[in-house]
Design a protein around this nucleic acid. Sequence first.
DNA 1: CCGAATCCTTTACGATACTG
DNA 2: CAGTATCGTAAAGGATTCGG
Lengths: 120, 120
Amino acid sequence: MRPDPQHSDCRGVASILSRVGDKWSVFVIMMLGDGPKRFNELKRMINGISQRMLTLTLRGLERDGLVTRTIFPTIPPRVDYELTDLGHGLSRPVQALGMWAKEHQREIEAARARFDERNP
Amino acid sequence: MRPDPQHSDCRGVASILSRVGDKWSVFVIMMLGDGPKRFNELKRMINGISQRMLTLTLRGLERDGLVTRTIFPTIPPRVDYELTDLGHGLSRPVQALGMWAKEHQREIEAARARFDERNP
DNA sequence: CCGAATCCTTTACGATACTG
DNA sequence: CAGTATCGTAAAGGATTCGG
């Protein structure tokens, strides 16, 4: 049974997909699939993300109910981020996507090279 | 078995995920999962996309080897877009993501409302 | 350590007009 | 019908600085 693309509610689903689709969100979700992580831990794991973008991404995920933020009032302060049940549910298709990307990385790079060759 | 998020090659996979992550690409892939479509057919199905963005999106997908472009030299001209085998493979996790988004749309909207309530 | 705030540059995107 | 080209704005994102 096909998921009926013709009549999917583009409008509502778009705002969710654009979150999932967000480059950084995908990585954060993948990293958290493993278990709770601290802020700088995530920052180190996701190479290239700026502090600002990590903050914004985490806020967005928290807003969507996908991630919880736990503050430990210690010195120095410690903040843990963890997937909610909803977030874990999402992480499954996201991980599938990530694995697909990894498996077909070479094919796509080759296709890009061929295309760029044909279109100088 | 977990997909080992710690050691995933962020750098290479990122460029693929950012394509998948692109809002419009996701919709085009979902629409083409059904079978080949013409340019304006896609434009009508994906509400809100501009002609320019549809062109750019299709070029990107073609470059990645996910979509083929077939020109029929008729008058008026006709161009069909169709998923390649690679594209069909990708469409599976993408459809899964889309279905998840549809199923949990309400939950996420509720979470957003709660968050915005708590953070005025 | 975890973040908010500011500034500033780059990019994405829509609107419009034009072609085979 | 299926694009390409150009332009102007809006948004994303990096770098830096400051604070609890």
